[in-house]
Design a protein around this nucleic acid. Structure first.
Length: 226
DNA sequence: CCCTGATTCGC
DNA sequence: GCGAATCAGG
């Protein structure tokens, strides 16, 4: 297989989304993990948290291995400051229990902080919802297409990776690399990377035994097809 | 062992 | 330019 424009574009997109080289290779098909990594580097997009690169501290005395001759003082490659990826917030500021009729998400952008429909705060500081508040367990990811999308993964009109910022919901809709993949894009629940609705999905409370229901799959959590 | 990404180097 | 082989950390 060769690196067509489309395949390169897919590679770029997936790589920047943080998919592993293996996943990308699998998705593209016809290429190995190494090929993906090699191509990614040749494209200039590199540096993503590598497991093998954590060693870069100030004043590193030991300079042992020099497998290749004629390589005196290797310039310390500064690991690019990797922007924190959308993960769970360290410690959400617990808000007093307030309930609001409707979370205004449509129409106005301006700050309307506070008052998500929090019932109580769980042990880990997570939102605990009452069973009644639990939303229907609609999986965030729609049924997966069986045909891997070759065409451009860019979508007009939808929230793409480039549109992400601190104020909009980063909940993924669909699967990375597919043509209709995008992000939720709603205004976030302040202090969280997701909107109120998706916070409810992302942070599942431990409800009393018996009242628990099967949790919806987390983003990307489902078993990969193929 | 498995995984990961980085790098090298023959093609 | 490509990617298998190799390296090296988790």
């Amino acid at each position: 297989m060769s690196w067509t424009d489309e395949r390169i574009e897919s590679l770029r997109s997936m790589w920047e989304k943080g998919l592993t080289a293996s996943q990308i290779a699998d998705e593209l098909g016809g290429v190995s993990r190494n090929a993906v990594i090699g191509k990614a580097h040749r494209l200039g997009l590199k540096s993503r948290p590598s497991p093998v690169k954590a060693t870069e501290k100030v004043a590193k005395a030991p300079k042992p291995a020099a497998p290749k001759p004629a390589a005196p003082p290797p310039a310390p490659r500064a690991a690019a400051p990797v922007a924190p990826r959308p993960v769970a917030p360290a410690r959400p500021e617990p808000k007093p229990a307030v309930d609001v009729a409707e979370s205004p998400a449509a129409g106005d952008a301006p700050p309307k902080p506070d008052a998500p429909r929090i019932v109580s705060i769980g042990p880990g500081g997570f939102i605990r919802q009452g069973p009644g508040d639990q939303q229907a367990p609609i999986p965030p990811a729609p049924p997966r297409r069986l045909v891997p999308a070759k065409p451009s993964p860019e979508i007009a009109d939808k929230t793409s990776l480039l549109d992400l910022n601190d104020r909009i919901c980063r909940w993924p809709m669909g699967h990375p690399g597919e043509p209709d993949f995008h992000f939720c894009g709603e205004a976030v629940n302040p202090g969280f990377p997701y909107c109120v609705e998706h916070c409810g999905r992302a942070y599942q409370a431990q409800l009393p035994r018996g009242t628990r229901r099967p949790p919806p799959p987390p983003p990307f959590g489902g078993p990969r097809v193929r």
